[in-house]
Amino acid sequence: MPVRLQTVAILALLILAATLPGYLGTAATQRFAIDMMVKLVFVIGLSIFVSNTGVLSFGHAAFASIAAYSAAWFTVPPITKKVFLPDLPAWIIGTDLGLWGGMAVGMALAALCGLVIGIAVVRLAGIGASIATLAFLAIVYTTFSHATGLTKGTASLIGLPLVVGLPTATAVALAALAVAALFSASSVGLMLRASREDEVAASASGIAVRALRLVAFVLSAAVVGASGVLQGHAIGILSVGQFYLELTFLTLAMLVIGGQRSLSGAVVGAIAISFIAELLRMLAGGITVFGLAIPQMPGLREVGLAVIMLGVLMLRPKGITGNREFSLPRWLGGGTKRRESR
């Protein structure tokens, strides 16, 4: 079912409500809220492809990586670039575009890479497509790890201007929500979802479906790219390892747990898992409860998330939202809750 205006409104309010801890508390809670928005942009971007086509992607972290680094090439102060990124062309070293210029560059490059790899991905059915995206992730990871003159490799690239605060991150998240909703309601989105359940019909009708899927893939890559740019400029540090299997797992978990076939699922999953992950992280970092010291347990957060994800897959495979989109209850003038056909 297409995403309706009231769904977008509900989701936007939900997003705004989720950021509240960031305004009330300490620097730590603010960082948490910003990170939640960053992940939200990623998962919304991912869902533009996954929700509408039904094909899983393991490669979107690569788009975040590409966009994050290419944006940084245009936002890190030239003096820093000269020292840390000596392999950049001179004109790039000399250019400073600021956050939004950098974001535009990053998203454009992510979209371009999405176009190239997307041509291969949309030709493949189900598992083949997922493996291709995984191979793409490995290619970008390996390349960026060793291109030290452009990325600092596995060491951290520092010196990104810290220009992304909570309001900026929230604004981008709301923009991503709007883009995803518009796409879902567009004729392209409608046709894609009609072909989603039926690979055979999809490949039989051939080129048309492939072209539509490609559109979704490129748009999805660009939005996920924005998430990478936000991340870099929210914490000021980039490392290649931030954008590998860890991030892939976390964001896929958010999407699957929320409900991988709907935009509401993406939003709810990202927010819910952000909160749960933060709780688990605090627990893993070692805390004292009623005078009882719980020691540090690195890995606990990840184990907890994996258990939740397995539980959802087995007990509620359609995710928290059951793959439905939110709508107002009928007494408030909303439509009936229709079940997503699947």
């Binding site: 797992f249 896929l252 994996a306």
Partner: peptide, 15 residues
């Protein structure tokens, strides 16, 4: 469906 199997094995691996 195969994508559910895939994601399940991914989650188990991570666990």
């Amino acid at each position: 469906d195969p994508s559910t199997l895939l994601i399940t094995s991914f989650a188990l691996s991570y666990l």
